[in-house]
Amino acid sequence: MVEKTLNHYVVNKNTLAICSIASCEFSSIVYEIDQILYVRQTPLKIIQVSCLANGSTHKGRCMAVSYHTNNRHKLPVPISEKDSIYFFPTSAPNNFHCHWISYHHVLHLQLAKNQETIITFRNGLQLTISVSFYTIEKQLHRTAHLRHLFSGL
């Protein structure tokens, strides 16, 4: 896989996941279908900028999701309904350890030891994250429900 370093990033159809990283040089690792990007923005900042690039604020999208789903925490975000790009957080978005996962690219979830989950993406990439299987499965279902709701609007 190709590796690059960027100052800014906007989510697109090729984005699989945005993960936080503790580094002096960058704040996020972005996994795309065919490359890994090291980005100087935090995962939440990437999500916020990506929402703006697609015509709304992150806060506005969260308000709409909350209104339609009656949920208040760890809300999935429709980055672009037009392109069917939906991401869900693995924990509270302000948490340093929060990663953002593309709903569309998830192929399979697998329970790992020590309350970890292995996410297999459609391109074969496997990502092990320190979040319970139950939490990721619930987030995946929430996002599927949201996608279904928004496709009917």
Rank of each mutant, 00 (worst) to 15 (best):
F87I: 00
P89A: 06
P89L: 02
T90P: 11
T90C: 10
S91R: 01
P93L: 03
P93C: 04
P93Y: 01
P93G: 08
N94K: 01
N94T: 11
N95T: 00
N95M: 02
N95V: 00
F96N: 11
F96I: 06
C98H: 00
C98M: 02
C98I: 01
H99N: 14
H99R: 12
W100G: 01
I101A: 03
I101M: 10
S102Y: 08
Y103I: 00
H104E: 15
H104V: 07
H105V: 01
L107D: 13
L107I: 04
L107F: 13
L107V: 02
H108L: 11
H108C: 10
L109E: 02
Q110E: 15
Q110H: 08
A112M: 13
K113E: 14
K113W: 09
N114F: 14
Q115I: 05
Q115V: 06
E116S: 15
E116D: 12
E116G: 11
T117W: 07
I118A: 10
I118Y: 04
I118P: 08
T120V: 12
R122S: 14
N123D: 15
N123T: 15
G124W: 05
L125T: 11
Q126P: 05
L127C: 09
L127I: 13
L127T: 05
T128H: 04
V131N: 06
S132L: 11
F133Y: 15
Y134V: 09
E137Y: 13
K138C: 08
Q139S: 14
Q139C: 06
L140Y: 14
H141P: 00
H141G: 00
